[in-house]
Amino acid sequence: MVRSVLRTLANLLLPPVCIVCRTRVGSHGLLCGACFAKIDFIAPPICDRLGVPLPYDAGSPSLSAAAIAEPPVYDRAHAVARYSVTMRELVQGFKYRDRHEGMPLFARWVARAGAELLADAGLIVPVPLYRSRLWWRRFNQSAMLAQSVARLTGVPADCFLLKRVGRTASQVGLTHDQRRRNVAGAFKVDDAAKARVRGKNIVVIDDVITTGATAEACARALKRAKAARVDVLALARAVEPTAFVL
């Protein structure tokens, strides 16, 4: 009863509003109907490797032309939605403007989008930040998301297993090849931590998959440490490779 009274008082002082447009909504941490309708959720059929939408369902396995031409280092990738206007506002507010009120919603979305990947996962690992960037930003949005998904699914998260050992330039504005070179060798698993990786199915969590270069660099480091499988799960996908079904 006390909690109910306090919640009512809090809602009177700080009425719940949409986390994008600030329109009044029924509960905190939600979107209004208009903003929710603008999110372009990624739904089947999708490429079994890259997780990008396909024009039609060709049965299983379904692979895009890009996945056939250049298979990724990671095994599978899924993302909640395309990185369109509303999703970009959500991610950038979360990442750069300390807007964390949407975290429970984001975690539910990610857990739902990655249900197949998480079903037999042994460990969730976030994409790490370099220590100076972590100090400047004060938090790692991927680690926060990983911990929230872990609480929802029961799959343990380890936010310190994968380390970023090199300070890389911002990936914004770089081509696919430039991004790949930028993060080459940027991640590692310490020798003392390799026993926690060996033989496990690992899900790497990031906020956005752009070209996949960061995800591949993380997967390469984890596979060198003898992970059985490495999948990638993200809130959004910014770039969709050619999606002809083969």
Rank of each mutant, 00 (worst) to 15 (best):
P71G: 07
F41A: 03
P45D: 14
A77F: 09
D40S: 02
A69H: 10
A66H: 03
D40R: 00
H78W: 00
H78R: 06
S60D: 12
S60N: 10
L54W: 10
A69V: 01
D48W: 00
D57S: 14
D48Y: 02
L54S: 15
I46K: 05
P53K: 01
A58D: 15
A66G: 06
A66E: 02
I39H: 05
L63S: 05
D57E: 06
I68R: 08
A67W: 05
P72C: 14
P71D: 04
P53C: 08
A79D: 02
L63E: 04
P55E: 12
A67T: 00
A77Q: 07
A67Y: 00
I42P: 08
A79Q: 01
A77W: 02
G51C: 03
P45G: 08
A79T: 00
A79C: 03
I68Y: 09
L50V: 03
A69D: 12
R49L: 07
G51I: 05
L63R: 08
G59N: 09
V73S: 14
P71Y: 09
P72R: 01
Y74K: 08
Y74V: 12
I42F: 05
A43Q: 09
L63F: 04
P72H: 04
A67F: 02
A67V: 00
D48T: 00
P55V: 15
V52L: 01
F41R: 02
P45L: 05
A67D: 08
V52T: 08
P45W: 13
V73I: 13
D57R: 09
L50G: 09
D57C: 13
E70G: 07
R49A: 09
R76C: 09
A69F: 03
G51N: 07
I39M: 08
P53A: 05
V52K: 00
G51P: 12
F41D: 01
A69C: 10
A43P: 06
P53W: 08
P72A: 13
A67I: 03
D57T: 15
A77H: 03
I39Q: 06
V52E: 00
A43S: 14
G59F: 03
A79G: 01
I39V: 11
D75M: 12
A77I: 07
S62M: 14
C47Q: 06
G59Y: 04
S62R: 15
A65N: 07
G59D: 11
P61I: 05
V52N: 07
R76D: 07
V52Y: 04
R76G: 05
S62A: 15
P45M: 10
L50W: 00
A79V: 00
R49W: 01
A67Q: 04
Y74W: 12
E70H: 08
D75W: 13
L50H: 01
D75R: 13
A67R: 01
Y74E: 09
S60C: 14
F41I: 06
P53Y: 11
I46L: 11
I42V: 12
G59Q: 04
P44G: 07
P61H: 04
P72M: 04
D57F: 11
I46C: 11
S64L: 02
D57I: 15
I46Y: 03
S62N: 14
A77E: 05
P61Y: 05
P45A: 08
Y56T: 15
S60A: 14
R49F: 04
L50C: 09
G51D: 00
Y56E: 13
P71L: 12
P53G: 00
D57K: 06
